[in-house]
Design a protein around this nucleic acid. Structure first.
Length: 809
RNA sequence: GCAGGUGUGGCGGAAUGGCAGACGCAGCAGACUCAAAAUCUGCCGGUGGCAACAUCGUGUGGGUUCAAGUCCCACCACCUGCACCA
C-alpha cells in the first residue's frame, strides 16, 4: 500500500508504469465476442509527418479516449483504433531531397508518432493498427478501385493539371501558392493530361439523402450540402436565327424567360468553333478566348471580378416564348463545366447578368415586381424569389414566382422547347497523381482491348523499387521510367500492353480505413461479413473541420458504393460526426515554426505529465471552438491533479457517501456522465474541481467518495487515478471497474436556497424545503422582504426550486 | 456576395427563460519561511458607501415576458468555409 515513494505525485514514474501494465494486460483490446453491446469510436488517423506529434493532435484523441474509457466501464465492447494515413507528398518530397526510400521515412515517422501517442496513455487497441502504405492494406484499396472500374464509375479523361515550368512537375493544388510553385517560386501553368476520374456525381442524390439519416453537427451537414450543390431548374432551347441548331441553356428561373434580353456562352463553348465562318468578329473572339484561357484559378477567384466579354457577331438567337431576337455574348463568367455552358441572361433579376448588362449597356426587362407593387431595378437586380409577383409575362402575369416556375416548366415540356433538369456543383473526383508514393492503379492499357483491369489474384500490385522518386520531365509518374515494370502482357488478349503509371491520391486509403479496423488481418476480404455486421456503423467519428467536405464526402461515397455492391451492411459509414477546434499559440495565432509559437507535446509530458496535458486540453474551452494555448493554464491543471493526489491523506474508512456530501456526489456523477457524452469536457472537469474543493473544505472524505471521484476522473487522467486506486488497496484495476451510477432523486438537496425577487429583481434569498408548497414559500419570501413590500401586490410567482417573484405596482 | 459560427470580468470560460460571472488563470492581502519557490487562507465586474446596501452591467438599438446572456426583429464587429454554379 502506501510507501515513501508515493508521497509525492511523480507522473513520470506512474505513467510509464501504467502504460506498461495496460500493454501487458491488453487492457483496451476490442473483443471479438459479438454478443456484447458494441461501441465504435473513431478519430481521424494522422499523417505521420516528420515533425512528430503536434499539440493539436491530442485534443480529439483525448476526447474520444474519454468516451471510450467511460463506455468500457459501462459494459460496452469498445473499438477505439489507430493507424497511419502514410502515403503523401511531404514524405515523397523528403525522400527526393534526402535520397531515402519513402518506405523508410514512413517507418521512422510512424515509430516516432507511435511512441508519442503511447506516452499520452490513449486506450487505442494497438493490435488493430493499420498503415495505408502496407501492401496488405492497399491490396484492398486497389480491390475497391477495381470494383469501381467494373461498375463503370472509374474512367479516364483529359484534365488540366498544374505544371511547374521550372521543376517540370505536376503539382497538387496545395503546392500552388498564389499562382507560383511552392518550392521554387516559378510560374505554374495549365497543362492537359489524361487522368483517372471517379464518378462521384452519380452518387450526388444518395449522398444528399443519406445526410437525413445521420447525426452530424449542423455545420458539417451544411457544408456537405453546399458542396454537392443541388439545384432544380430547366433546360431551355433557344433557336439560332436562320439555323437548324438550338442553343441549350440551363436556368433555375424559367419564370423569368420573358425577361431574357441576351444570351452568354462560355469561351470554350463548341458552337464558337462550329460557326467560325459566320462569325463577323473572329479576331476579337480569338483574342478574348486566349486571354480567358490564360487566367489562372487564382485570378478567377482572388482578383476583382469585373465582368468582361465580347459580342458574338453575326449570330443571334430567338426567345422561344415570345419570338424576340436577342444577341449572344461570350464571357468567362459562364463556365463550360456547369449546366450547358450557356445561359439566358435576365439582367433585371440576376446580379451577375445585371452587372454585365450595365457594363455593356444591354437592355433590362422587368418581369417580377414586389408583392406590394413596383420595385426599382436600375440600382440593383431584383432577385427576391419569396415575395416576387410576375408582370410583363403573358400567361404568367399575377402569379407568384414559385407558381410561375412550375407553370413555365409545364409549358416548356408541353411545347417541347425545354425540360425539367437537376444540376449539381459537385464534380467528378480527379483520382490520378503523377507521383511515386501512392497506391499503383491496377489497370493495364492494351492497344487492342483498351483499359483492362488486372486480375484480383494479382493484388496487391506493389510499388516497384525505383532509382529516383522525381516525376519525369514530361509530367509522368516516376513509375513511367520503370520499363520492365510498365511493359506487360494484356490480361485479356495477351498482346503487348502498358501498366498505368499514375498512382492514387492520398484520399484513397482514408476513404475506407474504418472498415479495416474491424478485421485488420483478414486476407480473404477487406473485412469479414461478421465483423462488419457487428461493428458498423461507426458510432462516433471526430475529425477536423478541414476534412468536412472532401474526406467525409469521398469516404461516404465509397461506403455507399460498397453498400450497393453488397460489401458493407449500412448505407452510411458514420452515425455521428463532430469536429474539434484548433489549438492556437499563446498569442492567439495559428501555431507555426515561422511564428515561433509551437508547443511540443513531449515537452509538456516531460515537465507536467501526460495526465496534466490531457486534462488541460479538455479544460481549455468548448471542444468545437479554437482555443489559445496557455502555459499558466497547464500549471493550473497540474495543481488540480496534485490536489487530487493529496486527497488520499484525508480519506476515512467509511465506505458510503457522507450525509452532507451525498447530494453533491450524485449531482457530480450525473453532470460528468452527461457532459462526457456531449463534448462538454470543460464543465465536467470543473464539476470535479468543485467537488474536491468541497472535500478540502470539509477536511475529510469517505472511501466511497474517493472511489467515485477517481473513477469519474479516470477517463481524463487515467494514470494518476489508476495509481491512486492501487494505493488505496481497492480491488482489481480501475479500468475494469463499473462506471458510477447516480440516483436522480438524490441529485436534489432537501433544503434549497432560492431567490426572492420584486418585479424580477433579487432582493433576498430564503431557504425552502425540496417540496415546499406555494403558499408557505410565498409567506417565507414576504417575511424576508417585509420592509420592501410597499406597493400593491398584483401577482405572486413561485417556481419550485428556483425563485419567488412578487410583482408590485 | 452566400452559408455557418462567435461576441459575457484583466484573461480562458460557466449559466433546461428564473440569484450573470461556476471552474480555472492572473492579481491583491495574509499564514508558513532567514529568504524565495511551493503550499494554505481570504478578497477579487464597474460606480457610490466604513458598512448594511444602492445602482449600472452579457457587441448596438428595439420588442415579447412577472422575469431575457438565453426568445423575436433590425443592425455592428470578428472568425471559418465556399466563392461568377445561371
Amino acid at each position: 500500500m502506501e510507501n515513501g515513494m508515493n508521497k509525492v505525485y511523480a507522473p513520470k514514474r506512474i505513467e510509464k508504469k501504467w502504460q506498461e501494465i495496460w500493454d501487458n494486460e491488453k487492457a483496451f483490446a476490442a473483443s471479438n465476442d459479438y454478443s456484447k453491446p458494441k461501441y465504435y469510436a473513431l478519430v481521424e488517423f494522422p499523417y505521420p509527418s516528420g515533425q512528430g506529434l503536434h499539440v493539436g493532435h491530442p485534443r480529439p484523441y483525448t476526447a474520444l479516449d474519454i468516451v471510450s474509457r467511460k463506455r468500457r466501464m459501462q459494459g460496452y465492447n469498445v473499438l477505439y483504433p489507430m493507424g497511419w494515413d502514410a502515403f503523401g507528398l511531404p514524405t515523397e518530397n523528403y525522400a527526393i531531397k534526402n535520397k531515402i526510400h519513402p518506405k523508410i521515412v514512413t517507418k521512422n515517422n510512424v515509430a516516432r508518432f507511435k511512441e508519442q501517442l503511447h506516452s499520452l496513455g490513449f486506450s487505442f487497441d494497438w493490435d488493430r493498427e493499420i498503415n495505408t502504405t502496407d501492401p496488405n492494406y492497399y491490396k484492398w484499396t486497389q480491390w475497391i478501385f477495381l470494383k469501381l472500374f467494373k461498375a463503370g464509375l472509374a474512367y479516364k479523361k483529359e484534365m488540366p493539371i498544374n505544371w511547374c515550368t521550372s521543376c517540370k512537375v505536376g503539382l497538387a493544388n496545395e503546392e500552388v501558392v498564389n499562382g507560383v510553385c511552392e518550392r521554387c517560386g516559378s510560374e505554374v501553368v495549365r497543362k492537359v493530361k489524361s487522368e483517372w476520374m471517379l464518378k462521384i456525381t452519380d452518387y450526388a442524390d444518395k449522398l444528399l439523402e443519406g445526410l437525413d439519416t445521420v447525426d452530424y453537427i449542423e455545420r458539417v451537414k451544411v457544408s456537405q450540402k453546399n458542396w454537392i450543390g443541388r439545384s432544380e431548374g430547366a433546360e431551355v432551347d433557344f433557336k439560332l436565327k436562320d439555323k437548324e441548331d438550338k442553343l441549350r441553356v440551363y436556368t433555375t428561373r424559367p419564370d423569368t424567360l420573358f425577361g431574357a434580353t441576351y444570351m452568354v456562352v462560355s469561351p470554350e463553348h463548341p458552337y464558337i468553333d462550329q460557326y467560325k465562318d459566320e462569325i463577323t468578329n473572329w479576331d476579337e473572339i480569338v483574342a478574348y478566348r486566349e486571354q480567358a484561357a490564360k487566367k489562372s484559378d487564382f485570378e478567377r477567384t482572388e482578383l476583382a471580378k469585373e465582368k468582361t466579354g465580347v459580342l458574338l457577331g453575326g449570330i443571334t438567337a430567338i426567345n422561344p416564348v415570345n419570338g424576340k431576337e436577342i444577341p449572344i455574348w461570350i464571357s468567362d463568367y459562364v463556365l463550360m463545366t456547369y449546366g450547358t455552358g450557356a445561359i439566358m441572361a435576365v439582367p433585371a433579376h440576376d446580379d451577375r447578368d445585371w452587372e454585365f448588362a450595365k457594363k455593356f449597356n444591354l437592355p433590362l426587362i422587368q418581369v417580377v415586381e414586389g408583392k406590394n407593387g413596383p420595385v426599382e431595378i436600375n440600382e440593383a437586380a431584383f432577385t427576391d424569389v419569396a415575395t416576387g409577383k410576375m408582370i410583363h409575362s403573358d400567361f404568367l402575369n399575377g402569379l407568384e414566382v414559385t407558381e410561375a416556375k412550375e407553370k413555365m416548366k409545364d409549358f416548356l415540356e408541353e411545347k417541347g422547347i425545354g425540360t425539367r433538369k437537376v444540376n449539381y456543383k459537385l464534380r467528378d473526383w480527379v483520382f490520378s497523381r503523377q507521383r511515386y508514393w501512392g497506391e499503383p492503379i491496377p489497370i493495364v492499357e492494351c492497344e487492342k482491348c483498351g483499359f483492362v483491369p488486372i486480375d484480383e489474384s494479382e493484388l496487391p500490385l506493389e510499388l516497384p523499387e525505383v532509382e529516383s522518386y522525381m516525376p519525369t520531365d514530361n509530367g509522368e509518374s516516376p513509375l513511367a521510367a520503370m520499363t520492365d515494370w510498365v511493359n506487360v502482357k494484356c490480361p485479356c488478349c495477351g498482346g503487348p500492353a502498358k501498366r498505368e503509371t499514375d498512382t492514387m491520391p492520398q484520399w484513397a486509403g482514408s476513404s475506407w480505413y474504418f472498415l479495416r479496423y474491424t478485421d485488420p488481418t483478414n486476407e480473404e476480404a477487406l473485412a469479414s461479413k461478421e465483423a462488419l455486421n457487428y461493428w458498423l456503423p461507426v458510432d462516433w467519428y471526430n475529425g477536423g473541420m478541414e476534412h468536412t467536405t472532401l474526406h467525409l464526402l469521398y469516404s461516404r461515397f465509397w461506403h455507399r458504393f460498397l453498400y450497393d455492391e453488397n460489401v458493407v451492411p449500412t448505407k452510411e459509414p458514420y452515425q455521428k460526426r463532430t469536429s474539434h477546434g484548433m489549438i492556437l499559440g499563446e498569442n492567439g495565432e495559428k501555431m507555426s515554426k515561422s511564428r515561433g509559437n509551437v508547443v511540443n507535446p513531449d515537452d509538456i509530458v516531460n515537465e507536467f505529465g501526460a495526465d496534466t496535458l490531457r486534462t488541460y486540453e479538455m479544460f481549455i474551452g468548448a471542444f468545437d471552438l479554437s482555443a489559445s494555448w496557455s502555459e499558466q493554464g497547464v500549471k493550473g491543471c497540474r495543481r488540480f491533479l496534485e490536489r487530487v493526489w493529496k486527497l488520499k491523506e484525508l480519506v476515512t474508512d467509511e465506505t458510503d457517501y457522507s450525509k452532507e456530501m451525498e447530494t453533491k456526489m450524485h449531482q457530480t456523477i450525473k453532470k460528468v456522465t452527461n457532459d462526457f457524452e456531449s463534448l462538454k469536457f470543460n464543465t465536467a472537469i470543473a464539476a470535479m474541481m468543485a467537488l474536491i474543493n468541497d472535500f478540502y473544505k470539509n477536511n475529510s472524505l469517505t472511501k466511497g467518495e474517493f472511489k467515485t471521484l477517481i473513477t469519474l476522473l479516470n477517463p481524463v487522467a487515467p494514470h494518476i487515478t489508476e495509481e491512486l486506486w492501487e494505493n488505496m488497496g481497492f480491488e482489481g484495476r480501475l479500468y475494469q471497474t463499473q462506471w458510477p451510477v447516480y440516483d436522480e432523486a438524490k441529485t436534489v438537496e432537501n433544503t434549497i436556497e432560492i431567490a426572492v425577487q420584486i418585479n424580477g429583481k433579487t432582493k433576498a434569498t430564503i431557504l425552502v424545503a425540496k417540496e415546499e408548497e406555494k403558499d408557505s414559500a410565498i409567506a417565507k419570501a414576504k417575511e424576508a422582504i417585509q420592509d420592501k413590500l410597499t406597493g400593491n401586490v398584483v401577482k405572486e410567482i413561485y417556481v419550485p426550486g428556483r425563485i419567488v417573484n412578487i410583482v408590485m405596482k
